[in-house]
């Protein structure tokens, strides 16, 4: 497999990094993040009139929570749009066949397209590093947390990219591919919560008593959802923070507290690990299916 010198990835890096667009976009992005962060700090300090210190470092943790949510939301917006046009776009531009007559196997073409958007989302993440680093500097979050987050972020973008490329191979029209990708990811992200709710209702019906949903139930219902995996990166440092009372904060602290009650081996399968494993396996399957569909001798028109 051509991972490092994948010609498709190389070509994209060359054309995208040339010119003014990428640097300008990245600068805008960093400015935006910094702006959000500043507003956040200013807003909190102003509300908290009786604060004795000029700046409360615990606020940094809260800000961190907001920033990574924002970062992931962005990933889910950008990566599908980029990848869902990757193969269908080549088809529409009449360049796909020129690729298919070369000795490059179809899975290298698919992987090249995935790597392009993973590289882009890593670039976005790296450019937000100074802002995240600022939060890190104020304390409250360990370096290991950041590393885990990076791994999870890369795995997630790999999976999102694989889904986009899959639908781009499946459908001839880019627009259909984009919509399908969003629907597919939406179902995995939020549809799994319906599965969870449904299971809770059935359990209540069977046992005739209202029971707590255990971590095992959360895990087995929600493992495909990136939101679930993401709950591992929520930091609950007391009730002081506004973030605690967001819907997302509630969910994260509920799941995190349930892990403590879990006695089986499942307690080692933290949300981010479970979801990360799902990302790896699902991506492998999607890449496999995309490669087969892209192969002209297999696809029957």
């Amino acid at each position: 497999m051509k991972i490092i010198n994948n010609p498709i990835l190389l070509k994209d890096m060359k054309t995208k990094l040339r010119g003014w667009r990428t640097p300008v976009l990245i600068s805008c992005y960093v400015l935006l993040l910094t702006g959000i962060l500043l507003l956040f700090f200013l807003g909190n300090n102003m509300l908290d009139r009786y604060s004795t210190s000029a700046f409360d470092p615990r606020l940094a943790v809260d800000a961190y929570n907001y920033i990574i949510v924002f970062q992931f939301a962005l990933l889910f917006l950008i990566v599908p749009a980029m990848t869902a046009t990757s193969i269908s776009g080549e088809r529409e531009r009449q360049t796909l066949e020129l690729m298919l007559v070369t000795q490059t196997p179809t899975h290298d073409i698919i992987i090249g397209k995935i790597l392009i958007s993973v590289a882009h989302s890593i670039l976005l993440l790296l450019s937000s590093m100074p802002v995240l680093g600022m939060v890190f500097f104020f304390g409250g979050i360990g370096i290991m947390e950041i590393v885990k987050l990076l791994i999870f972020y890369v795995l997630t973008s790999f999976f999102v990219a694989s889904s986009g490329v899959f639908f781009s191979t499946l459908f001839r029209k880019s627009i259909v591919a984009i919509i399908s990708t969003y629907i597919f990811l939406g179902l995995l992200t939020f549809g799994t919560f319906f599965v969870l709710g449904f299971r809770a209702i059935i359990m209540e019906y069977v046992t005739h008593s209202s029971i707590d949903v255990t971590y095992a139930t959360y895990l087995t219902s929600l493992f495909p959802s990136p939101v679930f995996g993401f709950t591992s990166f929520y930091f609950d440092k007391g009730d002081y923070y506004s973030f605690r009372y967001s819907l997302w904060g509630e969910l994260a602290s509920e799941i995190n507290s349930q892990i403590a009650y879990e006695t089986s081996i499942l307690r080692f399968l933290k949300p981010w690990i479970a979801n990360g494993l799902f990302d790896i396996l699902a991506s492998a399957l999607l890449i496999f299916m995309s490669s087969i569909m892209l192969s002209p001798l297999i696809r029957k028109k």
Partner: peptide
């Protein structure tokens, strides 16, 4: 670069 791209695809 066009030639280089297809060269790469042909190894």
């Amino acid at each position: 670069e066009y030639m280089e791209f297809y060269g790469g695809l042909q190894g």
